[in-house]
Write a protein that binds this DNA or RNA. Structure first.
Length: 276
DNA sequence: AAACAGTGCAACCGCTCTGAC
DNA sequence: TGTCAGAGCGGTTGCACTGTT
């Protein structure tokens, strides 16, 4: 696997691990513990570099590794945490017991990233891709009013919001844009994570799945050591109350997941009546 | 059935950062 | 202050598997 071995010059083996090597490494670490990776291969009788041993142990052999497909909850947690933490895979992995940073990174790059792109979400900023928006039709909608815009701004990337306000002005909605700009700054200041954490989201007896989902994200975020420079916006989790069937929660298919993620994140398909 | 294309993922490299000494 | 080991990350590779023609 991977590119040509770098340790060939040292006579060290590279490439896929054999069951015998796995057994040697596991037995040694169980007996002596992990650490001192430089000397470990020699002591364990392995012709591998320490880094390779470390990666093999951390990403594959560790007893608490959870194998298999990511659950819907895990995927949703990854998306939410990535919106907060960015590509800090190890930090994300800390919130997903049994998952490694490498596994999460691979899953992100091969599944989540593609899905977000397909549904018009920028996987870097988690904002709707402006090149896929039809804001002009949005702003000419008779259902659009200031109140709805004020609720929407909690979901919007500031760049998208600025563009929307600009377009609103050009559509004769200058008054609304002006009012938007006059809103208290707390409503648009980014990275006030405590705003999210402090929110008390009451259980919704009709939509308990959504509540559990929100609670899970909150629980996960509560423990995160978040940077003030986080890109996570002042998202109102209460706005993510979507009807979702238990079958999806319990591991729906790819299509179901995509549909849900699309509904959850896709700006252009947001049902604005829900916000009004 | 065979060839080909697309996808998933384990594993790698090179680099930076951090903490211990 | 400099050096070293370990940890972590982004990017990449190529095998194995699956789907399509």
């Amino acid at each position: 696997m991977g590119r040509s071995p770098c340790c060939d010059k040292n006579g060290l083996k590279k490439g896929p691990w054999t069951p015998e090597e796995d057994e040697k490494l596991s037995r040694y670490i169980h007996a002596h513990g992990a650490g001192n990776w430089r000397n470990l291969p020699k002591n364990a009788g392995l012709e591998r570099c320490g880094k390779s041993c470390r990666l093999r142990w951390i990403n594959y052999l560790r007893p608490d590794i959870k194998r298999g497909r990511f659950s819907f909850e895990e995927e949703e947690t990854i998306i939410q945490l990535h919106s907060v933490l960015g590509n800090k895979w190890s930090a994300i992995a800390e919130r997903l017991p049994g998952r490694t940073d490498n596994e999460i990174k691979n899953y992100w790059n091969t599944h989540v990233r593609k899905r977000l792109l397909r549904t018009g979400i920028d996987p870097v900023t988690h904002a709707p891709r402006l090149d896929m928006l039809d804001l002009s039709s949005l702003l000419t909608s008779p259902q659009l009013n200031l109140a709805s815009l004020l609720r929407l701004q909690t979901l919007l990337n500031p760049e998208a919001l600025r563009l929307a306000m600009s377009l609103a002005s050009s559509h004769g909605g200058g008054g609304g844009a002006q009012l938007l700009q006059n809103q208290p700054q707390a409503a648009v200041q980014p990275n006030h994570f405590e705003n999210i954490v402090d929110q008390q989201i009451p259980p919704n007896p009709i939509n308990n799945d959504s509540f559990q989902c929100q609670q899970m994200v909150q629980d996960n975020l509560m423990g995160a050591n978040l940077s003030q420079n986080s890109s996570f916006e002042n998202v109102n989790l209460d706005s993510f109350s979507l009807n979702r069937s238990p079958s999806i929660i319990n591991g729906g298919g790819e299509d179901e997941r995509e549909r849900f993620c699309s509904d959850l994140l896709r700006f252009e398909s947001l049902n604005f009546e829900d916000f009004m």
